[in-house]
C-alpha cells in the first residue's frame, strides 16, 4: 500500500455550462476494520480510516461527507456538481491519523 492517499478524479469527457455532472473520485485507503479479541471485545486503538470528504469548487465548499469504517476499502464516491463557471475542483479526504489527501481537476467547457 505504498500509494495510500492517491486521489483520482474522473470528469465526463464533454462538459457544457450549466450541466449537472457526475464526478467520480477514488481514494486509495485501507479503511481499517475494527478488531475484536476472542471474547468479542473491541480492541481499543486508533483505527485508520477516512473521516471526512470535502469538495471545493472554485474555492467554495460545495459538498461534504462524513464517513465511517463501514465504507469499503479504496472507496469510490460519485457525487453531483452543477458547473456554471470554469474553475478548479478539489476533493480533500482527511483520516484518523491526521493526514489529508487531496486531488484536483480543472473544470473546462468544451
Amino acid at each position: 500500500m505504498a500509494e495510500v492517499g492517491r486521489v483520482s478524479i474522473r470528469l465526463p469527457s464533454a462538459i457544457k455550462q450549466g450541466d449537472v455532472i457526475r464526478v467520480r473520485t477514488l481514494v486509495i485507503h485501507p479503511m481499517e476494520l475494527v478488531q475484536r479479541d476472542k471474547q468479542g471485545k473491541i480492541l481499543p486503538k486508533n483505527y485508520h480510516f477516512i473521516r471526512t470528504m470535502t469538495v471545493n469548487y472554485g474555492g467554495k465548499e460545495v459538498m461534504r461527507a462524513e464517513t465511517t469504517q463501514a465504507v469499503s476499502q479504496n472507496p469510490l464516491f460519485t457525487f453531483p456538481l452543477k458547473v456554471d463557471r470554469p474553475g478548479k475542483l478539489t476533493v480533500t479526504f482527511s483520516d484518523t491519523m491526521g493526514k489529508t489527501y487531496e486531488g484536483a481537476a480543472e473544470i473546462k467547457f468544451s
Binding site: M63, A65, T68, A70, F77, T78, P80, L81, K82
Partner: peptide, 18 residues
Amino acid sequence: LAKFSFTPESGKAFIATS
C-alpha cells in the same frame, strides 16, 4: 454508515459509493 451534505452548487442530491 455515512452522511452526505449538499449545497445548491451540487445541483442534485445524488450519491454513489460502496
